[in-house]
Amino acid sequence: MKLISWIFLIFLGIFVITLSIGNRESVSFSLFPLPFVMDVPLFMLILAGGFLGVLLGAFRTWISDGKLRRENRQLKQEVGKLKGDLSRLAAEKTPESDKTTQQALASPDK
């Protein structure tokens, strides 16, 4: 799996380098209602748009997984409580109760 991710990163790097070399011309970037105009290389706009898309997608995924994270947190608390109960019951267990349990298991009722 690690090899596949390295191969993917190499191809992504080659793509970004090719994009940067091929689109070095400046374009005018403006936000229409605002009096803001800026000349930037085209590849910077493309990469900034891709980066913004990744950030928005990660934020959306984080929001949608909130219910699962909450449920996971509650289940971990419940497991911790049950482990505590189990250790408490194991500490309360006496050798006499073990002997009684073993005798009950050894002689089945007829």
Rank of each mutant, 00 (worst) to 15 (best):
L12N: 05
M38A: 04
F29K: 00
R24P: 01
S107W: 04
L12K: 00
T18P: 00
S30V: 02
Q103W: 09
L82S: 06
I7L: 15
L3C: 05
V79E: 08
E71Y: 05
V16C: 04
Q74G: 02
G57W: 07
E25I: 04
R24F: 14
V16Y: 03
S5R: 14
T101V: 08
G22S: 15
S97M: 10
E92L: 13
L56K: 04
T101R: 12
D85H: 02
K83H: 09
K81F: 13
E96N: 07
R88A: 14
L52K: 02
Q77G: 09
I21F: 11
F29M: 08
S107C: 03
F8A: 15
G13L: 03
L31G: 02
L86N: 07
M38H: 07
S107N: 13
N23K: 09
I14T: 04
L3V: 11
A104F: 09
D39C: 01
V27L: 09
D98S: 07
P41I: 01
K110L: 10
L19Y: 02
F43E: 01
L55Y: 06
S30H: 07
A104K: 10
V37S: 15
Q102E: 14
E78L: 14
F8Q: 10
F32S: 13
I4Q: 15
L68V: 12
L89A: 13
L56S: 05
V16P: 00
T61F: 15
R88E: 14
I46M: 02
G22C: 06
F51L: 13
G80V: 01
F43K: 01
K2Y: 14
P33N: 08
T94M: 03
V79K: 11
A90P: 00
D109W: 10
T18R: 12
D98W: 11
S26T: 15
F36P: 00
N23G: 03
I46E: 02
S28G: 06
E78V: 05
L34G: 05
D39S: 09
K81S: 07
G49P: 00
V54C: 08
S97W: 08
V54W: 10
T94A: 02
F36Y: 12
R24T: 12
L34K: 10
I21Q: 08
A48G: 07
S107T: 13
P33Y: 05
L31Q: 06
G49T: 04
F8R: 13
P33S: 06
G13W: 00
K81D: 07
L34Y: 15
L52H: 02
A58P: 02
L89K: 14
K67S: 12
A104T: 07
F43I: 01
L86G: 02
N23Y: 11
T61N: 09
L3Q: 11
Q77P: 01
L47K: 01
G53Q: 04
D39P: 03
Q103R: 15
K99P: 02
G22E: 12
G13S: 05
D39K: 10
S87G: 01
F29A: 07
I17P: 03
L86R: 08
T61K: 13
L105K: 09
L31K: 04
A48K: 03
L68T: 14
R73T: 08
E25F: 09
L75A: 05
E25N: 12
L55A: 12
L19N: 07
L86H: 04
F43Y: 11
I14D: 00
R24C: 06
E71W: 06
I14P: 00
V37I: 14
L52R: 00
I21M: 06
L3S: 11
P41E: 10
G13A: 05
L105C: 03
F43M: 00
